[in-house]
Write a protein that binds this DNA or RNA. Structure first.
Lengths: 108, 108
DNA sequence: TTGATATGATACAAAAAGGTATCATGTCAA
DNA sequence: TTGACATGATACCTTTTTGTATCATATCAA
């Protein structure tokens, strides 16, 4: 039930792939359109798109002979949630507040 | 000025390293203590710790012949911020709310 | 001092990542 | 139908990653 975070984290580990996500945040793009934005072959970009798809971060739909790549930002949710576990270490004031709350509602 | 996200994202790409971060969230640990939690050699764990350190996700202090590894959750902040850019795609209702707020307090 | 312990450092090997080049296939447009 | 175009698929290469094995160094404790 809990999603496997590994493919998403791995997909995010490459700067080109992170750039692709930002690009797709603006608009859907074909493979050729994405490739135009990078100084590498279409085949290389295609591999990145496959890894992004493996991580669920993008979806691909066929449209004629083209493949339209779309951002699937929802897949970032589990990643954010994983990172959110560390929120407790970010701000000692927030920490103090949490302690107070937990004291009042001991539900652990 | 804006931090280089790459070392942090790369550090997060490995499941063992993510597990180490959670471990260090509970308490500081020596290299040997961390190694005890995994089915691999101390040298391998040490390499993971170096990568975590490279990403700024942990800090290491010497204490006698031991090296105490501590979580540095603050380094996750830029990662969260990067991911936060995609918040706009998660919930259209939240989007609408944000638009209203931004209209009322135009401070960008 | 001396032996045990904690770590550092290096060489090595297997696997994965990231890229190119090349050719096949499916689709559009005239 | 036919040529151009978008993509799929595969082979191949280089570099990085991930792990092991081994030995050196520093420090603690008796």
């Amino acid at each position: 039930m809990t999603p496997d975070l590994q493919p998403a984290f791995r997909a995010l580990a490459d700067p080109t792939r992170r750039d692709i996500l930002r690009l797709l945040g603006d608009r859907d793009m074909t493979i050729a359109e994405v490739s135009d934005q990078f100084d590498m072959t279409r085949a290389a970009v295609k591999k990145h798109l496959v890894m992004l798809s493996d991580g669920g971060l993008i979806t691909v739909r066929a449209e004629g002979r083209e493949r339209i790549n779309s951002l699937n930002a929802q897949a970032l949710r589990p990643v954010m949630d994983w990172l959110g576990w560390f929120d407790r270490f970010w701000d000692t004031r927030l920490d103090a507040l949490k302690s107070v709350i937990e004291q009042e509602t001991p539900d652990d």
